[in-house]
């Protein structure tokens, strides 16, 4: 009887948890994006942007949306830290690749980094969202320009869900749309990567 009741309780209170990694070159705005997501979905005040130091290691953000939980893992983007990205691919349900639209000099470097991510076998079939960040900056590249650059590797994405969205993590524009897109895709991709069931 106890087993039945506790099982029922667990069944009724269980939730799906998804893991999403946020990667991208250093200074792309990954931590700022995470802080913005937290402030939009949790209503708490995020760190002010000038207080955000380079991430060495990772930051974690947890939000609840539509009865499910999404865990964001924001990894550091320095060249050396990129080598640890791949350790997170196996357990993630989606990848967010943040691009600094205001830094055209590093767009090539960006493309190379993303290419390396896409080539990884463990990433196969996982939704990838590219975010053209810093759209608030006057010198920022247009979405079309960024799309053009990333279309070069688009064919490798194959049947995978992918999208390029413009955002400004600083001002918060487009962040909600990006998270909604991610939530839709991880749910759609449930068969390939089943969510982790948590009871809470």
């Amino acid at each position: 009887m106890y087993t039945f009741l506790s099982g029922l309780y667990k069944y009724l209170t269980r939730r799906e948890a998804y893991y999403i990694v946020i990667i991208g070159l250093d200074n792309a705005g990954k931590t700022t994006l995470l802080e913005r997501i937290k402030s939009i979905f949790l209503g708490v005040l995020g760190l002010p942007p000038e207080r955000i130091a380079p991430t060495v290691g990772l930051n974690i953000g947890r939000i609840d949306i539509g009865g499910a939980r999404i865990n964001f893992q924001d990894l550091g983007g320095q060249t050396d830290l990129q080598s640890i990205w791949e350790r997170y691919y196996r357990e993630c349900h989606a990848i967010v690749f943040v691009v600094d639209s205001s830094d055209p000099e590093r767009i090539e470097e960006c493309r190379d980094a993303l290419e390396k991510v896409i080539m990884d076998d463990t990433v196969e079939g996982i939704p990838v969202l590219m975010l053209a960040n810093k759209q608030d900056m006057p010198q920022a590249l247009e979405l079309e320009q960024i799309k053009e650059i990333f279309n070069q590797i688009a064919e490798r994405l194959g049947a995978r869900d992918s999208r390029v969205l413009p955002i400004s993590a600083l001002e918060g524009t487009g962040v909600k749309d990006a998270v909604d897109w991610l939530f839709l895709r991880v749910q759609r991709n449930k068969v390939n990567r089943p969510p982790i069931i948590i009871s809470q």
Binding site: P54, T79, K134
Partner: peptide, 20 residues
């Protein structure tokens, strides 16, 4: 370096001495 980065890459380009 965080403050420098928040100014934008057109003002200051930050790199790590040991990670970049």
């Amino acid at each position: 370096s965080g403050i420098h980065r928040s100014l934008g890459v057109h003002v200051s380009k930050v790199r790590s001495l040991n990670l970049d």
